[in-house]
C-alpha cells in the first residue's frame, strides 16, 4: 500500500482529491512545496466564490460591543 502510494505520488501532477490524500499520507517529499501551493490555489479559488460581496462594507458594519 505504501509503495502504491509512493508510486501515485510520483505520478500525480493534477490536483485531485486523491492526490491530496496521497500527499497527506506521505508528508515528506521533494515536490511537497509545489503540491501545497497547488492546494492553496484551489482553496483561494473557492474563497473567491464565497467571499462576502461587499467585503469592505461588511467589515465597516461589523462593530461589536465589548464583552468579557
Amino acid at each position: 500500500m505504501a509503495a502504491e502510494r509512493e508510486q501515485k505520488k510520483k505520478q500525480t501532477t493534477t490536483r485531485t482529491r486523491e492526490a491530496e490524500e496521497v500527499e497527506e499520507a506521505v508528508p515528506a517529499g521533494g515536490d511537497q512545496g509545489e503540491e501545497l501551493k497547488d492546494r492553496l490555489d484551489d482553496l483561494l479559488d473557492e474563497i473567491d466564490e464565497v467571499l462576502e460581496e461587499h467585503a469592505e462594507d461588511f467589515v465597516k458594519s461589523y462593530i461589536q460591543k465589548g464583552g468579557q
Binding site: V59, Y62, I63, Q64, K65, G66, G67, Q68
Partner: peptide, 12 residues
C-alpha cells in the same frame, strides 16, 4: 473575540 476595532469579547 474581536471586531477589529478595539472591542473584544471572551472565550473563558
Amino acid at each position: 473575540n474581536s471586531d477589529g476595532k478595539g472591542n473584544s469579547y471572551g472565550c473563558h
